[in-house]
Design a protein around this nucleic acid. Structure first.
Length: 872
RNA sequence: GGGCGUUUAGCUCAGUUGGUUAGAGCAGCUGGCUUACAACCAGCAGGUCAUCGGUUCGAGUCCGAUAGCGCCCACCA
């Protein structure tokens, strides 16, 4: 789609001449469509790896709302992409859509009023209700997935429109979606390769579980939230001895799942109890008292009850102390039935335990807690009143109820053994800004489990796995049947493993498909492989991988950046990219992160329409790499003014060189002979160096700041000083020098600004140059050598003139005169060098300041005296 | 509890290896229709560089401590 069959003439269209009244209106529409027609940003896939600059673009979650934060960070990446394109690299800048996973499912459920029931058969004629019902309609998984695709397609179009309006220089021919067949194939192939090398394994293990979403959640998706709770002091009685042991717990409802008590090995209070047994109140279960370093003598009574499972510490104790499992919390967050007295559920009084537990079974965790506290109170085992506290509780970051820990069968990528290699990769990566490396290192050092990639959801990449069903009807999970790579992508719920027929699905002697889908990060971790055509297009892959840069936000270093490094390390033995450019957040004026929950989300499109894309980009480019930036419409107004200034200054600079036919005849750089012109160009050459260095290290903000600062003084001082001379006759050397300098300066400034202000710079470029500014060469020192035969050491001409002109303006303003008011006598005292510099541009100063008589004195005491004329 | 970042004018921010009198824009005030630009231009005013201590001839900049703000991480009894 990078080039249409028609419209090829516009590529060759010559300059259009200078419009009478230039404006910003409509530039976005005009140029975004012309760029598309001309294939301006099409990736040149004949370029070899060293000539390519490849970007691992973050795929935005299309089911989320468009946010000004998107504009912010994508503009940063685009500015860098444009810089490298102008430097002659073939820029591989794809766009991806993340339409995978829970956010999409939830949006589809709410939007259409449906719910997925995988047990239902596919209904080819299904139409979603016009209006979502209050009671959701149950539909099959294929129908549900179809609705997910329908909605994400619409969402993607909204994103694409914004990106085009904003001027992202994406090659839309390389767009991917994380649920596409291509992404699924890469994702499943990646999984099969891991499985083949034993780097992903299936385990039944305690797993963090969201009871509302009914899915496992990985360590990276956790967040702590402060929640009210209460310490309950419970008395256990000793077996074969007098007295009891008091523990404190915030989860008394887990008492039936208690498997031991634990205290610190050095805690004198409890040492005598180690190796003895106590019985649980209400349930009469004998549990051992054990020692473990993790027990904190300072917390509660210094001795804790271990339940399977109340929290992640319980899991550690359970594993390290080889304790039994007593599961009471089901996957729906309600207490499971228990047969007291059966194996694993021994009790000193099974009948009493059963009667008590009857009161709890089937209730939610919260309800069970309320009831068990009453029962404990009645039994006398609750000592004193519960004391309220506030404590951090683990939540799934998108969830609404605290996580539970349940035992389930999941696929794990073995990341723990990789820790040292991953740390080394983190050192190898170039971070922008560098301190972001700490976040990665802290995360890798703190890894405490392998990476669970199974999710018990519907809309995602399925595992390409089936399991045989034995003749006894039992599923043989340890005999996984993997799909062949040539079949990918497969959906085990509809596809059949080799050697079986569909009729054998779910039958004894037959097979079942793995019902789970992969964690969204299991797919997102392969974005370089998906975008780069890994295995599907080896020629492309060799030209773009490992990529140059991963741009992303800092809060997903532990997820996206980390998991991408894991996959690349395991699959390719290398980093996935050489650089990581970490962007900050957009903050609201109260310096809080903007979030939709607070209702202060700013949608970008109206801002682009109001201020113009260049203006919005200008604001975004002011946010330095990694730095959070306040949302500030004022900065957009400043950006808009800059863009307008570019139009007007360009119109002036080119105005005297325009012929009647619209063409612009520019004197060559050899015409630059006047010291003032040379001084201006010398300073500009330094700005080119500074901007180039800044862009090379991803500091678009610094490059912009330097360029902009020069541009304003160029307009305020230099243009004013040469204005009269530039209007002179083209044949004379003075005017020719000014015109040549103006043309060179303008061509340079436009290119320096092009990465941030792509629309207005392209517009001006089209007045007098052929081709796109965005594929023009980035300015270089060498362009100045002809105009500056003696180098950039041009003396203080520009500074002295600007300073004296400033004094003249000040005098006129103080006297409340117009800027045209004549100066009768201007007296300047300064060093010999500065006086000489001033005199070298004497005529320009006289013209710009309206100076009648100029008196200069050599003196160590610098002074400027301005005597205004009595009458104009 | 550990770590990272940050604190400069009323607001948003620059300030590079330490070096004259700390800069810009916005907002404010005063002027000016000046043939590139009134959606503009010129000028003025506004700061104890968070606090304390140290190194140095010299500190916004380097070092240490403290405080505020923000973020990341941590075993929730």
């Amino acid at each position: 789609m990078s080039a249409h069959a028609t419209g090829s003439t516009s590529q060759a269209a010559g300059p259009t001449g200078i419009p009478e009244k230039p404006g910003l209106e409509g530039l976005e529409t005009t140029w975004s469509s012309r760029w598309e027609e001309n294939g301006t940003y099409a990736f040149d896939r004949t370029a070899s790896r060293e000539d390519v600059f490849s970007i691992d673009t973050p795929p935005p979650t299309v089911s989320g709302s468009l946010h000004i934060g998107h504009v912010f960070s994508y503009t940063h990446t685009d500015a860098v992409a444009r810089f490298h394109r102008m430097r002659g690299r073939a820029v591989f800048y794809p766009m991806g859509w993340d339409d995978n996973g829970l956010p999409t499912e939830r949006r589809v459920q709410n939007f259409f009023g449906v719910r997925c029931d995988p047990s239902l058969p596919f209904d080819p004629g299904f139409e979603p209700p016009e209006q979502p019902n209050k009671d959701p309609v149950s539909i099959s998984r294929p129908n549900f997935v179809a609705l997910c695709h329908q909605l994400t397609d619409e969402d993607e179009q909204v994103f694409e429109r914004l990106w085009r309006m904003l001027g992202l220089s994406v090659d839309w021919a390389h767009t991917y979606a994380t649920v596409s067949d291509r992404a699924q194939r890469v994702s499943q192939r990646g999984f099969l390769r891991l499985a083949g090398r034993g780097q992903v394994v299936q385990r039944t293990a305690p797993t963090l579980w969201d009871v509302d979403f009914r899915t496992a959640v990985s360590q990276a998706e956790l967040e702590d939230r402060e929640r009210p709770g209460a310490y309950h002091r419970l008395r256990f009685s000793r077996v074969g001895a007098e007295g009891g042991v008091d523990i404190e717990t915030t989860r008394p409802e887990l008492l039936p799942a208690c498997v031991a008590l634990v205290a610190h090995p050095d805690d004198e209070r409890y040492r005598p109890l180690f190796g003895t047994e106590v019985t649980t109140p209400l349930f009469g279960v004998r549990v051992p008292v054990l020692g473990h370093e993790l027990a904190d003598p300072e917390k509660g009574s210094g001795i804790a009850m271990i339940c399977t499972f109340g929290d992640t510490t319980d899991v550690v104790w359970w594993r390290e102390l080889s304790l039994p499992t007593r599961t009471i919390v089901g996957r729906d967050g309600r207490l499971l039935p228990v047969e007291w007295g059966a194996e694993g559920w021994a009790s000193d009084d099974p009948d009493s335990a059963s009667r008590t537990y009857e009161e709890l079974a089937g209730r939610t965790v919260k309800q069970a807690q309320t009831r068990i506290v009453e029962l404990l109170g009645e039994s006398g085992a609750l000592i004193g009143e519960p004391s309220p506290i506030t404590h951090p509780v683990k939540f799934y970051e998108k969830g609404e109820r605290p996580l539970e820990i349940v035992s389930s069968r999941q696929w794990f990528v073995l990341t723990l053994p990789l820790r040292d290699r991953l740390l080394a990769r983190g050192e190898e990566l170039h971070w922008h800004p560098p301190y972001m490396a700490h976040r990665y290192r802290a995360w890798v050092e703190g890894l405490n489990g392998d990476w669970n990639i199974s999710r018990q959801r519907f809309f995602g990449v399925p595992f390409p796995v089936w399991y045989p069903v034995g003749s006894d009807g039992e599923t043989q999970f340890d005999q996984a049947l993997f799909a062949g790579e040539d079949r990918l992508p497969v959906d085990p719920s509809t596809d059949v493993p080799d050697g079986f027929t569909e009729g054998q699905r779910g039958q004894p002697g037959g097979f079942v498909g793995d019902p789970d889908v992969m964690d969204t990060w299991a797919t997102s971790s392969l974005t370089p492989q998906i975008a780069g055509g890994w295995e599907d297009d080896p020629d492309l892959f060799a030209r773009v991988f490992p990529m140059d840069v991963r741009p992303q936000a800092h809060e997903i270093i532990r997820t996206w950046l980390f998991s991408t490094i894991v996959r690349s390390e395991l699959e390719h033995g290398s980093l996935p990219w050489t650089d990581a450019a970490i962007s900050g957040w957009v903050l609201d004026p109260d310096r809080k992160k903007m979030s939709k929950s607070k209702g202060d989300v700013v949608t970008p499109m109206p801002l682009v329409e109001k201020h113009g894309a260049d203006a919005v980009r200008y604001w975004a480019a002011g946010g330095r790499p990694g730095t959070d930036t306040a949302f500030d419409e004022g900065q957009m107004k400043v950006g808009r003014r800059l863009a307008i200034k570019v139009l007007n200054a360009s119109r002036f600079a080119l105005g005297r060189m325009a012929g009647d036919d619209g063409t612009v005849a520019v004197p060559g750089p050899g015409s630059v002979t006047m010291p003032l012109d040379r001084a201006m160009l010398a300073r500009l050459a330094e700005v080119v160096d500074e901007a180039t260095v800044a862009f090379e290290s991803y500091d678009y903000a610094r490059a912009l700041e330097r360029t902009e600062s020069f541009f304003w003084s160029f307009c305020d001082d230099y243009l004013e000083l040469v204005k009269t001379r530039a209007y002179g006759n083209a044949g004379q050397s003075g005017p020719a020098s000014a015109q040549a300098a103006l043309a060179l300066a303008l061509a340079t400034l436009l290119r320096l600004l092009a990465p941030v202000l792509p629309f207005v710079t392209e517009e001006v470029w089209s007045w007098w140059r052929s081709g796109s500014i965005h594929t023009a060469a980035w300015p270089e020192r060498s362009e100045f050598t002809e105009a500056l035969p003696d180098g950039t050491d041009t003396g203080p001409v520009l500074e002295v003139l600007a300073e004296v002109l400033g004094q003249i303006r000040r005098a006129k303003t103080t006297e409340k005169r117009s800027m045209r008011w004549p100066v009768a006598t201007l007296t300047v005292a300064d060093t010999a060098e500065r006086i000489a510099a001033l005199l070298s541009a004497e005529d320009d100063l006289r013209d710009a300041g309206g100076v009648v008589t100029l008196v200069t004195l050599e003196s160590d005491q610098a002074e400027v005296r301005v005597e205004l004329a009595e009458e104009a």
